[in-house]
């Protein structure tokens, strides 16, 4: 009993380098952020406890950026979901599906900035998209999609970058749908469409939700893609925060925005863990 207890503590000691490092850096960063949002760590004046920065935060500017972040995140995750289902189903029927799957995974290893550069060339005035649309006479003037007011460029890049991640999660879920259930459905006379809506979709729904939430958080917190491809105004909250801190030197507002983003991320991760618990319970 005594020996067991000793090993116990030794084990916690082993965690120290990795856990200590992460907790020290993240913890002190979070602490500084919260302190600064409440008026401490003032770089230019006196430290004072105040909620004034939180009260000033909720301006028109902030809500525009918030709505933009939510819009892009929601649309990107939903479009990805709508694309990934048919993609998974067709990959499943392809010869050499393993190769196709790994080829589709390529954008997962492509950094966000590179995705911007790649997509930027496609949606430019002389890019593939405009060239094809002009040749088909769908439009008679090239579309301006980079840094457009609505955010099509940013949305396209986000979809391009995030599809492989969703594919990874959803493909394994769709592969796991039991073949005998599908066969039973087919024997009972259900067509492909009906099989999809009544068997595959409900069974893979939890994974789809999880993948959607993860994509949502990633897009919501994004800085780079919106900065390079998105509209000048409004932009994501990360952009607003960076601008507040480094351009306007308003570190307290930046801290408030940071706190809000952390809280949003944690809420969505909680949702994620709750959902994945639900899935494991259903599977076992």
């Amino acid at each position: 009993m005594k020996g067991r207890k000793k090993r116990f503590q030794w084990g916690y000691l082993l965690l120290a380098p990795a856990l200590g490092f992460i907790l020290f850096l993240e913890g002190s960063a979070l602490f500084m952020m919260i302190a600064q949002s409440l008026g401490f760590l003032n770089y230019t004046g006196e430290d004072a406890f105040t909620f004034a920065h939180w009260q000033q935060l909720f301006s028109r500017n902030f809500f525009d950026n918030l709505m933009y972040s939510l819009k892009i995140a929601l649309l990107a995750s939903l479009i990805c979901l709508a694309v990934v289902y048919p993609l998974c189903l067709s990959i499943q029927k392809m010869p050499g599906k393993k190769t196709w799957l790994s080829l589709w995974k390529i954008p997962l290893f492509i950094p966000a900035l590179i995705a911007c550069s790649l997509m930027g060339n496609i949606i430019a005035y002389n890019g593939a998209l405009n060239t094809v649309l002009l040749a088909l006479k769908v439009i008679d003037k090239p579309l301006s999609l980079r840094n457009d007011a609505w955010g099509v460029g940013a949305l396209l890049t986000q979809v391009w970058k995030n599809i492989p991640f969703m594919l990874l999660i959803l493909y394994s879920a769709i592969e796991a749908v039991r073949k005998d259930v599908l066969d039973a459905g087919r024997n009972l006379g259900a067509g492909r469409v009906r099989l999809f809506f009544e068997v595959t979709l409900p069974v893979t729904m939890p994974s789809a939700l999880v993948a959607t939430i993860m994509t949502f958080i990633k897009v919501f917190n994004d800085y780079t893609i919106s900065k390079v491809m998105g509209p000048i105004y409004p932009s994501t909250l990360s952009n607003l925060m960076h601008k507040a801190a480094y351009t306007l030197n308003d570190w307290h507002s930046a801290a408030c925005i940071g706190c809000l983003m952390v809280v949003t991320s944690i809420i969505f991760v909680k949702l994620y863990t709750w959902l994945s618990d639900q899935i494991t319970r259903r599977l076992s």
Partner: peptide, 9 residues
């Protein structure tokens, strides 16, 4: 945690 917020702090 959000990349930009954490990077700044």
């Amino acid at each position: 945690l959000p990349g930009m917020a954490m990077a700044i702090y």
